[in-house]
Every structure is written in C-alpha cells, then in structure tokens.
Design a protein around this nucleic acid. Structure first.
Lengths: 192, 192
DNA sequence: CTTGATTGTCTAGCGATGCTAGGATCGGAC
DNA sequence: GTCCGATCCTAGCATCGCTAGACAATCAAG
C-alpha cells in the first residue's frame, strides 16, 4: 500500500508544481506566455503530462484562480481583523482588495477576467470562491445600512472595487488617485 | 483625379466592411470566433487584405471599440437628455450604461476587456473614447457633491458600473437583482 | 528470476491560429 | 500596344491547444 501512497503523494506534488509554475510564469510574462509547451518545459515534463492532471489549459487557470481565492480571503480577513471600528474595517478591506489585485495581477485575471471554467453564484461554486465572497460579506455586511440586504450591498461594493481594480490596471484610470477614490467609495457607500 | 478618389472611397468602404463584419461576427459567436481567416472569408477577400488596412487583429478590435465608444456616448446623452432632475438623470445614465453593455457584449469587450492597442487616460487617447467619458462626466458631475472633484466622482461611479456590467455578464453576479443594485448605487453615491 | 500486464511517459503529429513573403494579375499612362 | 505600378492571392512559417500511439519502467504471478 505504501507504494501507491508514495505515488499519489508524488502525483499531488507534481500537480502543485504545475499550478505554481503556471502562476509564476503568468505573473512574470502574462497569461499569453503560459503555453502548454513552455509550462511543460519548466516543470521538466512533456506536454501530455499536463493533461493527465488537468482537462486542459482552462482547468489550470481555474486551479490558479482557486488558489488565489484562498489567499485573497485570508488577506481580506487579516486586514479587517487588524482594524477596529466599522469605518476603519471597510477602508482596510477596500485597500486590501485593491492591493491584492495590484500585486497579483495574473492571479486576479485568472479569478475574474479569464475563463477558468469555474461556476459562480451557484451551489456548485468551489468553496474557496464562496469563502472569498464570505470574507467580503463579513467586512461589509455591518455597514449595509437599514433595510438593505447585506448580500446586495456586498455585491455592489465588490463590483465597485472590481471596476477600480481592472480599469486601473488596464490603464483606463490613472493610478495616482487610487487612495482618494477608495475614500470616496467608503464615504458614500458605507453607512457608518 | 477622379479615379484615385473612387479608389479611396472603395478602400474606405471596405475598411468599414471589415470593422462591421468583425463586430457582427463577434456579437454572434464571440471574439474567439473572429479569426483572420473567417473574417477574410466573410468579406470575400483574402487574408492579407486585412493587413493592408490594419496592423493586425488588435487594431481591428480597436476599431470596433472606437465605433462602440461613439455609440455609447450617444446612448448615454440620449438617456440623460430625456430625463429631468439630477436624480432621474443619474439613474437613467446608469441604466443606459448597463443596457449598452448587456446588449452589445462584444463591443463592450472590445472597449474594456480586450486589448485593442488603444491609449487611455492620455493625451493621445482617441477622441471617441474621450467623448464617452465626457458623456459620463456631463451626467454625473452635477451630483458629485461639495468638495468632490467631478472627474474623480465620475471615475468611481464609472468603475462601479463597469464592475456591475462585467461581473454580471461573466456570471459572477446573478442578473435578476440588477435593478436594486442600480438603485442602491445611485442612492448612495449620488448627492441629490 | 522470468514473464506478462499495467502503468506511466514521451515522440510525433493534427488542425487551427496570426501573420508575411513572393508571384500573378489587373488597370491606367504614355 | 506596351510598359509599369498598384492590388490581390496563393502558399507557407512559427506557434497554439490537444491527442494518438509507441516505448519504457514497474509490479504481481508463476
């Protein structure tokens, strides 16, 4: 039995290596540079090995997205738990979100811009994605205001953050004024 | 001279045909289906003809984006001019924006999701793009609130709309609650 | 220890992509 | 009628995601 277990471990290890390498390559040179050939060469295996772990490139992107969602949830919770008072918490959450997007552009793309073949807003949505939204909800629900459903408020606030993140990174918004934008957003949207 | 003029006219006409066909094909089957071969076949010319008009596929996407920006600006102005009172205007603007994105997904992608090789937030930004932002500014500047720069307010409001548009279309947000989201956004962000 | 089968991996190749070089063809100018 | 330049197409390159089939390593059975 031990032999099979070892093989399973090695297989899982290699799968992690694939995901980590894809992510690294995407962060370094963009997702366009993440071709199955280059990826295979970097992990020092041949192309078909990738397909014994994932159904295709989409699933690899999806795996990076899930990994990213886990990290984002942790980053958001770390930011909110270090702040006291609803207003401070929301601001910290917003900054943490935008910083995560700015520091991990490829991961953010995998989560929200690219097609990773993941389900959203369904029951079969992967747990890490649900959890990332839950982390948003935890920090934002308390400032939704009277008579406003926390989930609805979170969706709107999240959409605003997502818009700021993507438009800024795509060069549609000048990056200098990020801070006043965040303050305006929190000032107006959050009922504190 | 007349011969040259006719040829120029025909050339311009063919260029319009290329852009219109690319847009049509993208709306019908998505941008992935817009390959240079398929596009060439539809306009009944060979592939290289495309490259005598555009530097590459990116520039074709960019041309669709510019065309879309012109239309969006017109749609936004039509919506705001038909409404009276700041509050009604902003709501109409938001609805018009989201409706444009929902009804012209491929064009919206060309403008904001794909790389059309266009400059943004610079002096060499194409005029239609500047004008679309100007249309937003016209409708939103008056509700920025005291001490808030209209351009900054417009950026934030726009980012929120963009986030709603993209997250909804990508299936990240359930589409049913679009209307309450818009109302919440206008309620909170606009100082009316 | 040998054998046979199963598992794992690689080489080679398919169709499709964006893009380009070089030859053919057509039309206007003399 | 003849030439020349502009215009367009055929053919091809490198690269893409993905897969079939050959090959080698590994393990259980005799």
């Amino acid at each position: 039995m031990s032999v099979q277990e070892r093989k399973q471990r090695e297989r899982a290890e290699r799968e992690r290596l694939i995901v980590a390498t894809a992510r690294e390559l995407a962060e370094q040179q963009g997702w366009d540079a993440v071709t199955t050939r280059r990826l295979a060469e970097r992990i020092e295996y041949s192309q078909p090995v990738l397909y014994s772990h994932f159904r295709g490139k989409r699933e690899i992107i999806g795996a990076v997205a899930i990994e990213g969602a886990t990290e984002m949830a942790a980053a958001l919770r770390a930011a909110t738990s270090a702040a006291d008072g609803p207003r401070t918490r929301v601001t910290a959450l917003a900054r943490a979100y935008l910083e995560f997007a700015a520091r991990n552009p490829a991961v953010y793309d995998a989560m929200f811009e690219l097609d990773g073949g993941l389900a959203f807003a369904h029951e079969d949505t992967p747990q890490p994605l649900k959890d990332a939204f839950a982390a948003l909800l935890e920090g934002l629900g308390e400032v939704a205001g009277d008579g406003v459903h926390p989930a609805l408020f979170t969706e709107v606030f999240w959409a605003a953050l997502h818009g700021l993140a993507t438009l800024t990174r795509a060069g549609r918004l000048p990056p200098e004024d990020t801070e006043p934008r965040v303050e305006l957003l929190v000032d107006r949207l959050a009922m504190v």
